[in-house]
Amino acid sequence: MSKARASLSRTTLVHLALIGYTLIAVFPVFLTLINSMKSRNAIFRNPMQLPTTETFDLVGYTTVLGQGDFASYFQNSFIVTVAAIALVLLFGAMAAFALSEYRFRGNTLMGLYLALGIMIPIRLGTVAILQGMVATGLVNTLTALILVYTAQGIPLAVFILSEFMRTVSDDLKNAGRIDGLSEYAIFFRLVLPLVRPAMATVAVFTMIPIWNDLWFPLILAPSEATKTVTLGSQLFIGQFVTNWNAVLAALSLAILPVLVLYLVFSRQLIRGITSGAVK
């Protein structure tokens, strides 16, 4: 009886602590979202209040959508992220397959070489990357960003995917060889479909830092035509510091796609992290 009560009070304490931290984690985001839909006066007078019929006002959004070129920023971010993820997955999976499937001289060395980039941030090479991009005329193009993010994503992709590819049955690949499939067909038709869950995990891990990155867009592609959402909102908000409606609306617009994607995919994402990350 007493033990049951003790554990009940312990559970209550745990829930209180978790609810407390959940509030800390979510509240700032929530606050931004609700205030973005209020009139200027209401933002300052009652920041904690949900928008009511009187205080509801979308003036922030109309300012943002009227001023900044957000549609094109979104498009840029989208192109860069999707292209980089596709290349990371394709190149990373190919390299992971070569490393996990074949015995050849230099296999371990190549594995270590590719793994270097997991720990050493690509940013440290920025000085020379910019030089290279200037020399090849890629500055202020989305290609520059795609290349950098592909290089940045490959090490982790190779690492995670080769772990998973080692679990694909050798017998299956050999059955394919006996049935006359080429090594390329074995990779694309047998192995890739089987590591799809790992590919999803890698895609998420690759996507978040790319979408959120400020450094490389700022340095390699700051022109109006190539601005990404992160850089665009950074500059936009910088200009409109005093227009709270616009700032809050811009923030909300930047949060929303991430929020929606997260709510849809959170289960897969968390499963990916908990199953694949600590091995």
């Binding site: 017998d171 299956l172 059955a175 006996i178 479909p193 089987l194």
Partner: peptide, 13 residues
């Protein structure tokens, strides 16, 4: 030749 594997090795898809 044709081979029958211990783990069957059927193409899952």
């Amino acid at each position: 030749i044709a081979m029958v594997f211990q783990s069957y090795a059927l193409y899952p898809h």
